[in-house]
Simulated scan of single mutants.
Amino acid sequence: MSSWNELLVQQAQALTTTQLAVGFVAPIGDQGLIALDGEESAGFLHNQLTNDVEHLGTGEVRLAGYCSPKGRLLASFLMWRNASTIFLQLPREIQAPVQKRLSMFVLRAKTKLSDAGELPANQVVLGLGGGMAEDALQNWFDPLPDQPLTKLDHPLGTLLRVADAFGAARYQWLMSAEVAQTVVPELAAKLSVGRTDAWHLSEIHAGIPQITKATQEQFVPQMVNFELLGGVNFKKGCYPGQEIVARSQYLGKLKRRTTLVSIADAAAAAGVEVFATADPEQPCGMVVNAAPNGKGGIDALVEMKLAAIEAASVRLGSADGAPLIFLDMPYVLDPLDL
């Protein structure tokens, strides 16, 4: 019998958004996981991140940002907890430096940071979504989490329901390799099997940004719609960069947002600048996240000036580059902005 990993590799394909909407499963192979243990973990993180950690329940999932003193995002996390541990999920490529930076500020707080990605319970992370995903998961989970940003702990692993996409629920399932060996064949028989890029494509169409190495310290949270997604709590008190984040919210009008586009150029990648044809000499924004769309092009979340979004005449890399085709966002950008 093939291992769970071999089975996914053998069946994996580049998925289109249509296939994602019907139902898919994909390995999430590029995410790291930081664990914080100790009685003061919540209080420590509460003073470091953009969201409320002290009141994070064991059945909740939240987005949170980690900012520089200048209010620019060093990392974005998917955050959850159990009775003893708080978990922060972020790209593995930046996990080590972010974990080291957080550790520098622990001082006397009773908390310990560790890499949780290699723990048996977290060895495998699968992403699932689309209309058929719920039926597939109900073979093992009854009931399922009933709304986005909730979770349940189960003998077969941790199931996170994240933001919906394509009008259907999406999930992350963290499990042991032993559990994966049992469940992957059944999931692969019922759902389209994608690569990790398929999961990122679903994240992009859910409008969920993620800070990567290419975009660290590029964006204040509001530039990537983070407060619209519940990733910023403006009542929780101080954290690094808090004054600048609050000033961006309350003083003056926001001038930049992140929106969804399609680009017929494989060079579209996080960190690449974009240019408005009306002002070709300087960039109007930057690609936040990008993934192949299964049709030979790239779908992406791109941060840019609101005037450029409104004009909808923007090119990749230069004013002569590939055009950005603007798509409908899954949520409303602040109507006061547009």
Rank of each mutant, 00 (worst) to 15 (best):
L187K: 05
A26Y: 00
H46A: 00
D164Y: 06
R256N: 10
P145G: 12
Q282C: 08
E118Q: 15
Q95G: 04
G207K: 04
L156H: 02
E303T: 02
G129P: 12
T150G: 07
A214T: 15
L228P: 12
M223T: 12
E227G: 06
N289H: 07
A83R: 08
V98H: 00
A308G: 03
V9D: 11
I325E: 14
R257C: 07
F77L: 01
D146S: 15
D328N: 10
T150H: 06
L316W: 06
G207C: 08
T18Y: 09
R315F: 09
L126V: 15
Q249F: 06
E93Y: 04
R161S: 06
V22E: 12
L78P: 00
K253P: 03
E6H: 15
D328Y: 05
L126M: 14
E60I: 01
H46I: 00
G271Y: 12
G231F: 03
A169R: 04
L306M: 13
A96M: 11
A26T: 02
A109P: 00
A206W: 08
L260H: 15
M104E: 09
D164L: 06
Q147W: 04
G131Q: 15
I263E: 01
K253A: 14
S3V: 06
Q95Y: 08
V302Q: 01
Q10A: 11
I298Q: 06
N289K: 13
A268R: 07
D265M: 03
G157E: 00
V106F: 03
A116I: 14
F44I: 01
G130M: 14
T58Q: 11
D153F: 02
V22G: 07
L126N: 09
V220Y: 08
Y250V: 13
P335Y: 10
P323T: 13
L78K: 05
L56S: 01
S103A: 14
L144W: 05
A270S: 14
A319N: 05
T18N: 12
L36R: 00
K70G: 09
E217R: 08
A322E: 06
G127E: 10
A312R: 11
T18M: 07
L144H: 12
S103Y: 04
S176E: 04
W173Y: 10
D320R: 09
E60R: 05
V162R: 00
A177D: 13
K112L: 11
R72G: 07
F166H: 08
L306G: 09
E281A: 11
L102Q: 07
C238F: 04
E186M: 14
S202K: 02
Q242G: 12
W199R: 01
C284I: 13
F77P: 00
G271C: 15
E203V: 07
